[in-house]
Simulated assay, not measured.
Amino acid sequence: MEGFTCSRCNEFHDELPMCFGAEFPDYYFSVPPEERAARIEYSQDWCVVDEAYFFVRGRIEIPVIDSDEVFCWNVWTSLSEKSFLRSQDVWNDPARVNEPAYFGWLQTIVPGYPDTRSIKTREHTQALGTIPRVEVFEEDHPLTIEQREGITWQRVHELVETVLHG
């Protein structure tokens, strides 16, 4: 996307970012830094804390109205142990696209929305090499509504400015 003039800093940014994300699930930060190496296992796609809390990375896609573009949030969802283990069992299997969606709880604070931690999600496994798609379905939550109905370019700018400048 071409650049934009930011209403918060009044500077021209060369690019309009269309995807933001979290490196770790929020729960990761509840573990003191000096204990993380002993208590947390992770990759760019999954995270396990204390062998009891299971997280998978996914992507929330929000369509931009009157456009082919989507605005994305790379997020983490918590899954049950059973769902997590199943997702890992089929991770490298091309047939994983036939998996039913895994119920989860969002474990990422998404800027520009009221509290998003622990809202209901479904994690849809995609083709090999593609990050799972996360469907938010918390009734009446603005993120659920925007994922279903789409957002305007003005809203894209608001979200980008919120991420860039708080």
Rank of each mutant, 00 (worst) to 15 (best):
G21L: 06
G21P: 04
G21Q: 04
G21M: 04
A22F: 09
E23L: 14
E23V: 13
E23G: 09
E23F: 08
F24A: 07
F24D: 04
P25C: 07
P25W: 06
P25R: 10
P25M: 04
D26R: 15
D26I: 12
D26M: 13
Y27L: 12
Y27D: 12
Y27N: 02
Y28G: 06
Y28H: 15
Y28T: 05
F29K: 10
F29S: 05
F29Q: 07
F29C: 06
S30L: 08
S30A: 05
S30G: 06
S30V: 03
S30I: 01
S30N: 14
V31W: 07
V31T: 14
P32K: 09
P33E: 13
P33H: 08
P33D: 10
P33L: 08
E34L: 09
E34S: 07
E34K: 09
E35H: 04
E35G: 00
R36V: 01
A37D: 14
A37S: 13
A37I: 09
A37V: 05
A37Y: 00
A38D: 12
A38M: 07
A38R: 12
A38W: 01
R39Y: 00
R39K: 11
R39Q: 05
I40Q: 05
E41D: 12
E41Y: 07
Y42L: 09
S43D: 12
S43E: 13
S43H: 09
Q44H: 13
Q44I: 13
Q44E: 15
Q44G: 10
Q44M: 11
Q44L: 13
Q44W: 05
Q44N: 14
D45C: 03
D45V: 02
W46I: 10
W46P: 11
C47H: 08
V48T: 11
V48F: 10
V48M: 07
D50Q: 05
D50E: 15
D50T: 01
E51W: 00
E51V: 01
E51Q: 13
E51F: 01
A52M: 12
A52P: 00
A52D: 11
A52T: 14
Y53F: 15
Y53P: 00
Y53G: 00
Y53A: 08
F54P: 03
F54C: 02
F54R: 06
F55L: 09
V56A: 10
R57G: 04
R57Y: 03
R57V: 03
R57F: 02
R57T: 05
G58I: 12
G58M: 12
G58V: 12
I60N: 08
I60T: 08
I60S: 12
E61A: 15
E61S: 15
E61F: 06
E61N: 14
I62F: 06
I62V: 15
I62L: 15
P63S: 12
P63C: 08
P63T: 11
